[in-house]
Amino acid sequence: MIDWSPLLITFKLAFVTTCILLIISIPISYWLAYSKWKIKPVVEALVSMPLVLPPTVIGFYMLVAFSPSNSFGSWLEEWLGLKLVFSFEGLVLGSVIYSLPFMVQPIQAGFANLSPDLKRASYVMGKSRFTTLIRVLLPNIKTSLLTGIILAFAHTIGEFGVVLMIGGNISGKTKVASIAIYDAVESLNYDAANTYSMILFGLTFMILLAVYLLNGGYLKKIGRND
């Protein structure tokens, strides 16, 4: 019998990460889509860095930054009781940074593709920016939101470098499925590695299939035929 905890941790991590990302990505994407500030390209570049940077680089710097042996890490631990190295909270933070572009980019594109007149029309009707965002803009970029959610979720499941660096490899706490597979292979336990891999393979395929079905409008067509 395999140890299910790596899979549970993986999905718990993906779920928590996706929720946090959704909340922080909406304002970031909104700003990136509409702002005319000159520093915008800098922010865009920073948000997209995890796309090209080896995950181990992010993991390494987070490890250095949050280590209790330096002042920032010890301050966090003393004042906020937050231990970010080798803990689940640390994994979440690492994953949020690492999966940020996968959530921000679809939502930003969604905003940018909406006619600017929708927003203007709402303002002229006396509606605030917040009301406009909640009632006009977001409902009209549902597909983009969904794409972002699914990509961020799937990408978090596939993490390895960041979680290994910042999470260590603590069984039942920070050992996620991708690391468990690596461990199993190292100890020549191919059966366990195969089980984990099959489960991940099947789930990620289903998730991505869902994205393409939704974006292609296939589900709507099926719904209409009912």
Binding site: D117, A121, V124
Partner: peptide, 20 residues
């Protein structure tokens, strides 16, 4: 004054109806 506080009605060339 913000557009919200001006007493105007505006019809856009592309209509700008809310699709949702």
């Amino acid at each position: 004054k913000r557009p919200q506080d001006r007493d105007v009605g505006l019809v856009f060339q592309d209509y700008a109806l809310f699709p949702n």
